[in-house]
Design a protein around this nucleic acid. Structure first.
Lengths: 243, 243
DNA sequence: TATACTTATTGTTGTAGTGACACTATTGAG
DNA sequence: CTCAATAGTGTCACTACAACAATAAGTATA
């Protein structure tokens, strides 16, 4: 750990120039069975008119995660959802104005809880399908988003994160669809049913949804079982979890 | 991403109070077949006399990883080794003097390349076995170290990181010993030989080391094969890679 | 009533990986 | 020649799993 006191620089702002510190939050959600990410359109220089990952300054009194949750709530009005620190980006020159260190978080918002607000600082806020992004994004946000996507894919393979993307109640086939979406490959229906039920993380709600064929059974995620723990492994390959 | 320009705060230091930004580097190495970590003893308040993870300010012109490598070289004289960003710690109050955001890195130093320097800012520098740490450490460094250890354990399970702890040439039993050390359980000799050779990451050096019994064959790590990729899985359980 | 449609579920089978354990081989030192 | 240590090989039972097939259970609609 640094020892600011040793050099007294810290008490002399004229001698020690400090970078700005921000949090950026990559917010994912599921819309019409597709993975979407929230972006804001910049109003000012630099990168005016470009789309960017939402973020803001870290206040002196709040922790980094609190800052991320505050940003998240400011943009989406949502609280109490899954938020995880992703990576810290701090190359000099990533912002032409000044040195900015940005601690990136990623968040998963449930499909049924979206309502957006356009802040004064931006022209627009929108969900974008991760398959049709308005590239390039502002600053080094292409890279941040790519890192977030890689992490999300990686964690789906051995955690129960996928549930955080689904609404409160959902069907097993909807869950299967998420995995297929994000892994980009089809999964066997029978094997999927077996695996997911054997894992014991589903709670039967008794509810069902009717349609053309046999009614769809609806489940709830039992958060008390295996939260964050290893539950599934869908594929052999694993990507590095960081970067 | 934050937009400092929007609010002009950034150009008015009196209105926007900025935190300090440091990097801390958790440096691991292998000494006498045991995992050790480098700590420095603090000379000044706060936590005077406590042991701490080495670190320092991020300079305005350098990237975060460059800062980490610079710290590393200042402490150990070593360059060109494995360094990876770990996590960013930034709770208010973790340093009693001012708000400090600390980007933690972890580094693996080869067993044969250690030479330490005591800086002017510290009383002492030492390698500590991770099994006999001078707890509690300064600041929130217990937590940082625990995070680093968890990450190291986790990554050993699916990467070739263990090789970064070994000297240039090594025997298979030495490698096996690292895994046993860090996982805390014995591995079957025969299975280990098979698995490691099948993985195809060893290069036969032709060298050997003589002792009482059959000479020890020495290998080199073929970095070109499977760097950072999934190669082994020794145990089923996986811990979350971050935190 | 029949049938089509959709979700839900079970069965079967071959293959790959793995852990446990026993066994053999090789080489230098004394 | 024997001991000691490293360096491997063989075998076997068990488990997980992917692939594929088949069936069951409800609902809508012709």
């Amino acid at each position: 750990m640094a020892d600011p006191g040793d050099t007294a620089e810290i008490y002399d702002p004229s001698r020690y120039e400090r970078p700005s510190v921000t949090v950026d939050v990559v917010i994912f959600t599921l819309i019409e069975r597709e993975l979407h990410v929230l972006l804001v359109r910049r109003k000012h220089w630099p990168y005016e008119g470009y789309w960017a990952i939402p973020g803001g300054f870290v206040q002196m009194h709040e922790s980094l995660e609190e800052a991320a949750r505050r940003e998240l709530e400011e943009e989406t009005g949502v609280r109490d959802i899954y938020v995880e620190q992703l990576y810290t980006f701090g190359d000099p020159g990533r912002d032409p104005r000044t040195r900015v260190i940005s601690i990136a978080y990623f968040a998963l918002v449930r499909a049924d809880r979206q309502r957006l607000r356009v802040s004064d600082e931006s022209l627009d806020v929108r969900w974008f399908s991760v398959r049709h992004l308005p590239l390039p994004l502002a600053f080094d946000h292409d890279r941040i988003l790519a890192t977030a996507l890689a992490r999300l894919r990686s964690k789906l393979e051995y955690t129960t994160l996928a549930f955080e993307l689904l609404p409160e109640v959902f069907s097993i086939l909807e869950l299967k669809h998420i995995y297929e979406q994000i892994f980009g490959e089809e999964l066997d229906k029978g094997n999927f049913y077996r695996k997911i039920k054997d894992a014991g993380v589903l709670e039967d709600t008794g509810m069902q949804r009717e349609g053309r064929g046999r009614p769809t059974k609806l489940y709830r995620f039992r958060r008390d079982r295996g939260e964050g723990q290893f539950v599934f492994r869908w594929r052999e390959a694993r990507v590095d979890a960081t970067e």
